[in-house]
Write a protein that binds this DNA or RNA. Sequence first.
RNA 1: GCCGUUUUAGCUCAGUGGUAGAGCACUUCCUUGGUAAGGAAGAGGUCAUGGGUUCAAAUCCCAUAAAUGGCUCCA
Length: 644
Amino acid sequence: MLNITLPDGSQRQLPDGATGYDVAASISEGLARNALAVTVNGDVRDLHRALPDNATVSILTWNDTAGKSTYWHSSAHLMAEALEALYPGVKLAIGPAIENGFYYDVDLGEGRSISSEDFPEIEKKMLELAKNKSRYERKEVSKADAIAYFTEKQDPYKLELLENLEDGNITFYTQGNFTDLCRGPHIPDTGNIKAAKLMNVGGVFWRGDANRQQLTRVYGITFPKAKDLAEYLERLEEAKRRDHRKLGKELKLFAFSEKVGAGLPLWLPKGTALRERLEQFLRKAQVKAGYLPVVTPHIGAKELYVTSGHYEKYGADSFQPIKTPNPGEEFFLKPMNCPHHCEIYKTEPRSYRDLPVRFAEFGTVYRYEQSGELHGLTRVRGFTQDDAHLFCRPDQVKDEFMKVIDIVLYVLKALDFNDFTAQISLRDPENKAKYIGTDENWALAESAIIEAAAEKGLTTTTELGEAAFYGPKLDFMVRDAIGRRWQLGTIQVDYNLPERFDLEYTAADNSKQRPVMIHRAPFGSLERFVAVLIEHCGGNFPLWLTPEQFIVLPISDKYSDYAYQVKAQLEQHDLRGTVDGRDERIGRKIRDAEMGKIPYLLVVGEKEAQDNIISVRKHGEGDLGSMPLEAFVKSVQSQMVEAM
RNA sequence: GCCGUUUUAGCUCAGUGGUAGAGCACUUCCUUGGUAAGGAAGAGGUCAUGGGUUCAAAUCCCAUAAAUGGCUCCA
């Protein structure tokens, strides 16, 4: 008999040779039907493999990330089978599952290519093959047999992969007419692949090496129900509708100009209004938290970056130096604010009593990002960080972290990001030599971050080896309104720069000590944050932030005087808006204002002018009826207070 | 930076070798209209840039730039 422990801690006894499927069947028929794979002591395995004794087993279905991933990996094999059927002689490289679906890298051979026009045929073939309900059969093979198989098949990529595999550790999976070198695991059979869609095709290099063979990467996604595919495609459409590049243009927030240069955004008046409001919002919170605003120049002498180490690391791959009439004199556009802030720290001797000291700056920096990497506002060559550097004693790290977490949480709440986790990135304990700083300090900082996150009640994940060489960090991984994940709000410990800039403070015993430096940027950069925010709210910004809160729409030009009176009165209550004074009918004015995503449309005509009221229409909700100005002001103001 | 695709009016896009098009936006006129597009007229283009092929190029070829989908990178 086997003793099996389930995730809830309960125990079950099954006959020897029982499989994950048997466990699922012993729980419920439905679970057995939906089971895709199992985890055995944490490792994902095929559902139909015999279980070891005393294992902890959990059943994976479509609702588990690992279940989906297994499903998509199996789908990649199905696509490969379809490709082999349609493109005889195709050579296969690798085909993993990814976050949304899977891909397979293939070599079609000279003169053949796949384009999106070929997708329907491949999809059709996949579904046709899936209908056979072919089982994914696992088989352990010797290295010699595996090499013989792929030599026969003339697949150089699989042969190369085999070179790095150990004999006795090699498995093949076969479904239908297709056999692949694969570690697995896989779903039981192709039967529950009910919907397939190829998404994209692109060229990649074998093993990412530009000197090697160019392969075709075919991306696809599959689902157990046709409805799921339809929903997925709808989500993609929604993402397109929310694309910040599209909305940025439509709402006149920002633009790019070839003449100005790639990756250098131009902020239009409305975008600037939004951005400045964000800045004010954070500046206020920072001053309350004891930050000291500073301002530093956009360039720095070469020596500054030699000291910081950036010259050596990035000098050749970035914007090249600015020369002056003075021979040998060189300046660099600043790629970051930290070196400047270190120099500010050094302007006076610091006592342990002065710490922490927190310098904040909305600092514009320039980085020569690779041309292929530029993307709307999320990846640009000139951007403004909501930067601050905290210099503190080692024993203050935890407290400072907690305070920064407070600010980040405040920002996320005000902007309606409610779904997030904190990722703690620590040192790789196996490879401590990679990192700068003493063991003692690392241990102190790492436990400070972990404790701070725990005391703030954050949901956290911990990544070993993800820390920068100069210190551990905490990032907020935020899920937006349509389920995409973004990294916002970074807090990072730095042992490197204090060392390089020889920063010190005088301790209580009169000894010189090294302060700990903490970088932090709740937004990251204004550019990227605005991009994420646009996509999160679909261009419908929170009322307190939006460039225009209202627009007054006079029924005809007879009432435009009254319209301007309304605007002036609302402005006295610190509300922002305009009057649509065009010679157009009210229907047109409403349509344009709705398309412009302005939260409140205030219609005024004869009736309103006479009774000194306004007729209020809310964006996306329709007519709210008429009311006195004061009532409107009160309702809007209370909404804004609530949001903060 | 590499591979692919794209670039035509302010915007969204038609136009596959023979005189440059539509809708919206813009200007003017008419219209004074009550909750998602009132009507008419007009103006607007070295078809990204530079070369080439051709009697003839928006259209075919080459280069450059930018955008875009990937790859690589991301202090």
